[in-house]
Design a protein around this nucleic acid. Structure first.
Length: 148
DNA sequence: GCCAACGTTGGC
DNA sequence: GCCAACGTTGGC
């Protein structure tokens, strides 16, 4: 799950403990988000960062639910096409689990065996939410826990 | 700041 | 339904 550190970083989540992941406004990302259930684990990916890459682990703290900001007129995330009785956009709550020793750089991920198919590494990928296999998750977490 | 790779919008 | 124009994302 991507977020720009300038907006919200793993350090912020570590401080807050829990946060809402609202504002996803892309249908494909929405579909992945909507499948999430409490207890699932996710990787916090720092995008547009120096370097960009996985920065920690979080746990989904609540099953996916309609994004409340989508129906809040005047809000940045407001979407007039979304109605309370027929919501278009979904969100989840996330809880802090761990902060990596470092942000794992993309070139290192690309050079790591077992991550060849990882969706977030695919060329041209711009989705802010992408699926991760259990194996990929374990590999990324191991890299994040190492000092590189 | 540049630019590739998208997704969205709207005219037709 | 096509497609050009436009806006956004995000690595570099």
């Amino acid at each position: 799950m991507k977020c720009e550190p300038a907006a919200y970083a793993i350090e912020d989540l570590e401080r807050d403990g829990r946060a809402g992941w609202e504002g996803v406004r892309n249908f494909q990302a929405r579909n992945f988000l909507r499948e999430m259930r409490a207890g699932d684990l996710a990787i916090f990916y720092a995008s547009n960062a120096d370097p960009s890459g996985p920065s920690g682990v979080m746990e989904i703290a609540r099953d996916a639910y309609p994004d409340p900001f989508a129906t809040k007129k005047g809000h940045d995330y407001f979407d007039p096409k979304s109605r309370p009785e027929n919501p278009i956009w979904y969100t989840v709550d996330v809880a802090f689990v761990e902060r990596f020793q470092r942000v794992v750089p993309l070139d290192e991920l690309r050079a790591t065996k077992g991550l060849e198919e990882m969706v977030v590494l695919r060329k041209g990928n711009r989705l802010s939410v992408t699926p991760v296999t259990k194996k990929e998750f374990e590999i990324v977490r191991r890299l994040g826990r190492s000092r590189g």
